[in-house]
Nucleic acid binder design. Structure first.
Lengths: 164, 164
DNA sequence: TATTGTTATACTCTATAACTATA
DNA sequence: TATAGTTATAGAGTATAACAATA
């Protein structure tokens, strides 16, 4: 498969070099970890990250989530959620349940099989992630989390401005 | 298009909650920024991130890069590089040049048009990135860069072990 | 009229494997 | 035999837009 280094960080060269370098490093880190997670999900569970993410959302909402909520939470458009949900329904991991008082919508929820399957995947997923941050002290983890919190807050801020 | 928050961070709940939360936040941040960059490249330049990344590599190597080097640097397999390169060649942004002493290979390099086109894109790209990290002080930027440096080093470390 | 969800379509990116041509 | 690159294929993910059913 892929080799190692990737020279993505190579393209920083202006007065805003600091921001560019940071972005490229951020992108590199998340791509490297994400590649590992995707590969693991495919090899060990024959599944994909979007499917895992959808199930993760449902695990936190045992009563189920409407398609629209899923679409919003997963940051993808409706048609995609339909597709992924269909796959999971076909495999018996997920089911569509009625919503009282709105016959257009329904709740998507994990089945028993879905719950036990997800538990296994989540356990393994956790191990990959712990491994990914192995080199960092608890203090580092905390600093990183806080700094990224600022970044995230600013992004959501921008998005909100755009939506209005 | 997409709304705002995304509840991806919702799935953290074990003794390793710290690592999981960090990963989900890291993923969220890079996805939010990446979405903005992709949208901008599409809307303003009718191009894509992989194409931009390929051109960015070439800009740093005016003498050109071999397909294999590009494949390695961009972390994708050879067939993909052929495809993206073909597109860029068709649009006159990039060209394939001979390599002395190896008639199997050639150098891919930016054309004059490619160079001026890329310069424009890079200028805009930089503005998006600066904007994305607007809320952070130079000190924050630096801390973040260093911490992510540890993460990256560890990932490359793991990859190396796997390759051997 | 607006909303929920589906369907149909098209495009990009990706990996894999078989292939050609050089080395 | 090994390497550089291409081709062919298949699959995942995405957005868009038109559509049906219900509110």
């Amino acid at each position: 498969m892929n080799d190692s280094p990737l020279d993505l960080e190579a393209r920083a060269h202006s007065e805003h070099a600091q921001e560019l370098r940071l972005w490229l490093r951020l992108l590199t880190c998340s791509q490297l970890i994400e590649k590992r997670v995707r590969a693991g999900l495919r090899e060990q569970f024959d599944t994909t990250l979007p499917r895992f993410d959808l199930m993760a959302q449902l695990e936190r909402h045992p009563e189920g989530l409407k398609m629209k909520d899923l679409s919003h939470r997963l940051m993808v458009t409706g048609g995609n959620v339909t597709g992924i949900t269909d796959q999971l329904v076909n495999e018996g991991l997920v089911e569509r349940l009625d919503v009282d008082g709105d016959r257009r919508a329904f709740r998507v929820a994990l089945t028993d099989l879905g719950r036990t399957t997800f538990a296994e995947m989540a356990r393994q997923h956790e191990a990959w992630i712990v491994d990914a941050f192995e080199g960092l002290s608890p203090r580092d983890l905390d600093s990183l989390h806080k700094l990224l919190g600022k970044v995230k807050a600013h992004q959501l801020d921008i998005n909100q401005r755009i939506e209005e």
